[in-house]
Amino acid sequence: MAALPTDSATARRNQWLGLALVVLLAAVLPFFLSNYRVFQLTLVLAYAIVLLGLNMLTGYNGQISLGHGAFYAIGAYTAAILMDKFGVPYWLTLPAAAAVCLVAGFLFGLPALRLEGLYLALATFALGVALPQLLKYKHFEHWTGGVQGIVIIKPDAPFGLPVNADQWLYLFTLGVAALMFILGVNLLRGRIGRALVAIRDQPIAAEAMGVDISLYKALTFGVSAMYTGVGGALGAIAVQFVAPDSFTIFLSIAFLVGIVVGGLASVSGAIYGALFIQFVPNIADQISKAAPWAIYGVFLIACMFLMPGGIAQVVGGAWQRLRRKPGKSV
């Protein structure tokens, strides 16, 4: 819809204001919650970063990845190895994880470029299934710790800040997440975002308009993997432990659940999705060990039939009805 420029400028300003408010609210949250809840919310933020990255690839660009758990694992291991073997400070491991995953994603994306939807899903599925075994491999054991994995130490708050380690890690993760989201939103809102959607919906037209499809696709893969890697590194630091069996194909599937339930091709959907994959299994776990996954499966299928836009669509719709004014969800 073509809105007046001033309108969209105010709308945009309002959105940024809203975002700032949300971040502020999120920043005071840990002081009212137990350490365990704070830890869970830290993971939610890490997952949200991952889901934003996966959504760029799958939601916006239409490339299906069933193996993003692999990039999460690579990010997590990068952080763990750097901290454990080289004594690198935790905050420095994030750029490292980002860089490693950017390259890994780009490299995997290069051959994957030639694969259409279903086959890309297949190749990434294979990646997701194969990775844990690779992490256990005895010749890498020196680095990866083999089946045992690596234990890492939780960082304390710096500068003598009056917060405990859990609260600090949460605030740190919140800062990183805010940064990644601002970056992501700018990327997706601009020319690049439009190109991604064009490649998804109208590949031939996009090519005719001079979009270098292969480059965009491979780069999207790289950037998406980068986001996932940063999320993985943060997740590893929060959990203080990495091991191959935390990164099975089911982790990749959980991420898929996250973007589908949260909302495909939606930025806010990444947050809803992260909340969903963090808390719903916890609740369901009380029924049976298998219940969370059964619920995931049911939600996946139900979403495709009943609400293809996920929670973001429902929330966006409710929000609009509330304001009785045309507008777009963030």
Partner: peptide
């Protein structure tokens, strides 16, 4: 059949949903 000819993504998601359901059902 109901998902029909819709996007590849929708179909893949449904397949993955089935995978997860059968796996967890067996575990359950």
């Amino acid at each position: 059949r109901p998902i029909g000819e819709s996007s590849v993504l929708a179909v893949v998601v449904v397949f993955i949903g089935l995978l997860v359901i059968f796996n967890s059902l067996a575990g359950w």
